[in-house]
Write a protein that binds this DNA or RNA. Structure first.
Lengths: 341, 341
DNA sequence: ATCCTCTTTGCATTCGAAGTCATTTCCGAT
DNA sequence: ATCGGAAATGACTTCGAATGCAAAGAGGAT
């Protein structure tokens, strides 16, 4: 004895039943009409589309997600969006996923400790997959596997757990930088590392240190945290430690390189690159500014994001695909912040 | 004669029915157990929670969204994420919304023309609301009203259509900058405008121009597009137009101010601020770098994002709330890129 | 023991679209 | 007219959780 439900008066709240009624067909027909490849007579299709337009009908993605078990949502988890390098990556990823008909559920971490809460939400929304640029511990990574949610790590690897990932090759990049610096007749080397919990940070520093060692060069290492101020602070430390003799500086990212360049010029009156060569990593926008022109390794963001999206989509279609690591070589951007060989 | 559905073997795919069976209660009980305020006996609750934990059960937000007609999703639509100012805003908004139990569906526009496609998706996902930092035309704004989807504009207003919005006060900000410059004994004023389709860009430039006019100062205006390179290019134009006599430059944002400062110093050998004063707007990170220390108006991002989120949530609860505009005063950051009065 | 109230609990329905299956329609061939 | 096969269509069920309602249980007062 149910009373017939009234269609919501607000436009755009129409359901497939409303459209069906207006077009004089069944709900199934409406559904098929919006699914390409289904069998609908041309005349029926016209009627339905006309009705849909008149009612501003848009299929409810939530209901679709429930019945098809495909939310068409992908989680993007990023630790610190303020990193200057990530906005570009995020924009690229979002646009590429959109182009594939997939929506982005964004999670930005204020602190590492928030990861578990974020994952909680990721599970609830039944995302089809995730792209992660944040540190996950092995249990957290395992949770993705357990639940069958494909994941692709961006600029980090599973560290023990096999996980698909896309990275820029820190090692070859740092080797190129170190070799160029060594050929450039430098004597006292310094390194500004990233925060200890950054995978790429540690990898870059380790690569640079070892290559220097192989080439018979010693170096002092100071830790920064990837931001501008820490580049300045680290440079001050290094100047003290080397008795102002520092003449080659390798920074784990561009932002610290820029901080160090400014500090050298302004706080110490040291000419860069004449008296001090500075190199960075990433190839962020400000690295190419006239005042800096940082010699750096530019990450191939477009290719990397393209790969990340492609790998994720593959794994959504075929969850059994094995974890693959794709390593992209960065491009040495000569710049003018360093005298190279 | 339906065969009993087998629970998905993968952990974490359990449904409320699976939990109910494991705990020996009904599905309703499970549902109530996860809804606070519902009446469940302590012992029952324990049993259910234990079963849920054992099965790694997380309520399906998609199904919840369907039945409750509340997706707990908010769309954030941003035009150019690379704007240096937006990443900070985005991170703040995302974290604030998360704290309120709301997830962010991110849409990043590659081109203005994509807006309609994005809105299409916004309708499909039945978002509870939207925060928009992109240009919407009146029809697009009207579509939100028609559908009863609350919206808050960020740093732009409805321009004809009444819409809730949060803005940083361009006018008082530019007035403060202009007044300080005028007191600083400058003679030839130039302005670098933003792209014509930027609301704040036009507003800032217009405010500056009029205040200069009121104070009896003339000025040349050149258009940029908010990025570094256009600051450089615009400065070159202005130098030509003023026969190199330019000594006060007002830029519609910090990034162009920085581009202009670098250009003045490096391309023209002009000392900033001794021979040329430059002011910007926004208060982005690089504005405070040692090399620039741009005199600018810092937008109160925390307060603005807080207000945007609060206004949106209010409107989600009470869709009938009238459109409100909230204007926040920026803070004059003295810097050292300009000689002020 | 009886009655009454308040709390717990389960049943059944609902949200909106997709998809299975059975039925109807259509069109040309005979 | 009759049949065959394909195309088109609709009835019905399903996804997973929320909720109105009725029934059952728990306690208290008498």
């Amino acid at each position: 004895m149910a009373v017939k439900r009234q269609p919501d008066v607000r436009s755009g709240r129409a359901t497939s039943y409303d459209v069906a009624r207006a077009a004089g067909v069944s709900q199934s027909a409406v559904s098929r009409c919006f699914k390409q490849g289904a069998s609908v007579a041309p005349r029926t299709r016209e009627k339905i589309l006309a009705a849909a337009r008149a009612l501003s009908y848009y299929p409810n993605a939530i209901a679709q997600g429930l019945i098809t078990r495909r939310s068409n949502l992908v989680a993007i988890i990023i630790s610190n969006l303020t990193n200057l390098y990530y906005p570009e990556v995020l924009a690229e990823l979002t646009q590429r996923l959109s182009a594939q008909g997939i929506r982005v559920l964004l999670f930005s971490l204020a602190a590492e400790s928030d990861v578990d809460e974020v994952l909680d939400q990721v599970w609830r929304y039944r995302v089809d997959g995730a792209i992660v640029a944040a540190r996950l511990n092995p249990e957290q990574l395992a949770a993705f596997a357990d639940r069958g949610v494909p994941i692709v790590l961006y600029n980090r690897i599973g560290e023990g757990v096999p996980v698909a990932s896309v990275c820029c090759d820190s090692i070859s990049g740092e080797h190129a930088l170190v070799e160029a610096l060594v050929e450039g007749e430098h004597h006292v080397f310094g390194i500004i590392a990233g925060p200890a919990d950054s995978y790429v940070g540690e990898e870059r520093v380790e690569a640079a240190r070892r290559r220097l060692e192989q080439l018979g060069r010693d170096c002092k290492i100071v830790r920064g945290n990837f931001d501008y101020a820490s580049g300045d602070a680290a440079l001050k430390d290094l100047m003290r430690m080397t008795d102002r003799k520092l003449d080659a500086l390798i920074c784990a990212n561009d932002l610290m390189a820029i901080g160090a360049i400014d500090s050298a010029r302004i706080n110490f009156g040291i000419a860069v690159p004449q008296a001090l060569s500075v190199v960075g990593f990433d190839g962020v926008g400000p690295a190419t500014w006239l005042a800096y022109q940082v010699t750096t390794i530019r990450q191939p963001v477009r290719r990397m994001t393209e790969a990340a999206v492609a790998m994720l989509l593959e794994r959504i279609e075929r969850p059994d695909l094995s974890p693959e690591q794709r390593l992209f070589a960065g491009e040495l951007l000569p710049g003018s912040s360093a005298r190279l060989g």
